[in-house]
Design a binder for these strands. Sequence first.
DNA 1: TAACTGGAACGATAT
DNA 2: CTATATCGTTCCAGT
Length: 859
Amino acid sequence: DTYEKCPRPHSTCGVSSSSDARHAYSYTPNVSLSLPLGMGNPCLATQYHTLQSSPVISVSSCHQTGYSLQNDNHAASGYYLPHGLRPNGSPALESPRIEITAYSQYPEDEVEESNSEDHIIKRGVNSIVTLTLPNADGYRDPSCLSPASSISSRSCNSEASSYESGFYNYENSPQNSPWQSPCVSPKGSSSLMSCPHASGPVASPHHSPSTSPQIGAVRKYSLNGTTYRQTSCSPNQSPNPSPHGSPRVSITDENWQANTNQYTNSAIVAAINALTTDGVVDIGEGIPIKTRKTMLDHSMSLKLDPDGELCHEDYPSRLALKKESYCGGFLDVPQHPYSWSKPKPYLSPSLPALDWQLPSCSGPYNLQIEVQPKSHHRAHYETEGSRGAVKAVCGSHPVVQLYGYMESEPLTLQLFIGTADDRLLRPHAFYQVHRITGKTVSTASHEVMQSNTKVLEIPLLPENNMRAIIDCAGILKLRNSDIELRKGETDIGRKNTRVRLVFRVHINQPNGRTLSLQAASNPIECSQRSAQELPLVEKQSVDSYPATGGKMMLLSGLNFLPDSKVVFVEKAQDGHHLWETEAKVDKDSVKNSTVVVEIPPYRNQRISSPVQVNFYVCNGKRKRSQYQRFTYLPPNAPIIKTEPNDEYDSLGIARLPVHSKPYYSRPRLTPIVPVADPDACLVGGYPPCPPHHAAMPSSSPSSSPTLHDLSPVAYSPTHAAPPGPVVPPIQESPGHPNLAHPASPDHNSPLGMLHSQGSPIHLNSPGPHGYHPIYANSSPSSSPESHPSTPGGTVESPFVQAYSPGQAQAAAGSARAGGSSPSLLPEDASPPSMAITVKQEPQELDQMYLDDGELRETR
DNA sequence: TAACTGGAACGATAT
DNA sequence: CTATATCGTTCCAGT
């Protein structure tokens, strides 16, 4: 493992040391960075725009002024995130998708960016302000933190929708928008952060309400019936009529309560968010009316908060941000004295946007996921109660540790739910981390909203050896319809059910800069259905064997059936199917979690060098596991065992085209980070990552390659899968490899390209693409855009950021710039692939999701 | 009782 | 356009 890890890290690291990053991006980024300072500047935006823009413009029609404001932020954010939109929820247009589509040519990034641009532009204008309310954003706003507890979740949930709308707004908006202010005011921060809940009283309103309401809401729904739902989510909201919702709003507040708390860097976050965010929010208009959504009144939300206390920090920051944004930013805001209890780890002014790709190690530091989460975790809806914390395979919980940190100052470990598709890692629009509290939870945590993403902050204490047991994190599923309505959202929720836990730490360095590290877990399948039906290969007893085959291999995982089939497949780089054979399964030994198969002889017994192939377990047409890697060795070659599959990755990766889950892990890693150079690790001059501590076997995602199945797809870079239609981009699906093929670059065309790009490729490269890839990659946007890649690696991604506060932004900016560029430029971006990134249509999804892919393929 | 869980009904969409 | 296959979301009930 160790070495595995190392590799990744390196790769990641490679990406850039912080310093590097800066360099690279300085330009733009700075701007962003500046944000904190004064982010909002339109100018910047402009710049960005320029950069970015080129490409597209917009699509969106919708942008609204509101955006503008946001934009500012967004812009900033945007930079970071190309997609920012989504993450933040920024704006999107109502018809975003369409837009996207249009762009299709361009990578998502571009698109989004474009949006950003637009926004930005608009910003310039001013607008900002405006709206707000409405919810526009609302849609999903996730903003709300759910109250911490699970319960809250519900409430939130219920509200959720609303909350989405409302809350989000708040959060987001707040950040961005006006609203916030309101909310904030009280304690503003709290408002955001702390939700009322926090405060008991206040909360109550919300909370209780929410909760109850929720319930009520729910029921209502029922009553109304499903039918209604669409109509209105109203139920929830219904009460209030305003379209927008009332109800939820309240909820929102609640959410905020949650915030309160300690650890937060909220302020920072807020700021960040602000930056990032897009504020989108506002615009309000935008609200899609469509359906469901509940609308709640946002207003309500605003009110709530009183509590604020806790959150002050956050609050202020947010406010500030908002103001900035809106106003042009500056943060005047007040800061309240905070008083938190806790520590505030660091104070960085600005933190990198959540869609930035960051390395897992830099210099002496290495953020490792010591114990990976289980590959399946049924997320809960707002209408349900919590379904508990994410668990590790053995029944324990995931464990994260920061190596190389010798200071006595506690740090804050941030956790949010990220995507697990083949594009760059970014906050997942359809899932939010859910804070779990209770007697069974040993780890303290605190929720903060960063853009539209809920972030759980967990203390990393020296006395605990900078190690944290993550038993306080559940996963909340937001309704697809709610999210998809969000203005900026381009992704579709259907079949977009895989996520990764993304951990971040921000380390203040002597030079005043802040080093940010990130590690993403293996993919986690969050749908009940998939968890019950799709076979999952978590481990294989043999990774490689002579071409003669004949050896029995034990596969461990889930959902294996007596009639499960194990198929070995070899594809050409272009995804073309070269060979496929069904391995003999020892039916008598089949258990739900294990199956024994005989390694089939390779088609060519005279290979002179190892050949990488894939295999998958199939329970039916559409029920296939992800590709697993297997290597055939020349007959005389010594046999190697594998335990760790992963290790192979490297190998595999290299060769394999695409699939394999493992890949993905690796792939990602690889690709991504790697990108950079190995050296890169350094951040600022640090040497590459140190070896990991031995320990970590699994750690990084990478580490656990195996699991991945889920992996988003694996994609390898190669594959293309494009978006297009079906494709399989993902590797996953064994289904048809052929088809899918993602691999084939060809296909790619768009997609393919994108993916590729996305992924790895670009990422990595900073080089590659020219643009800063890094950022680009990292950039937020990228995310969106792109690529694909990410997946894997996640974590490791590459960038480091070291940014100084300002820098970060700058970076972001750069990113954008770059990113945008990427986006804009398709080229860079992804260039390669990016292409498209478009959202999706379903297609992509499909791609993403195995099933689809498979299906299609198969079919 | 409350927090989880596991299952599944039901309606919405995709094939 | 209809019949099915899948999926997403909400409910229920047991632990």
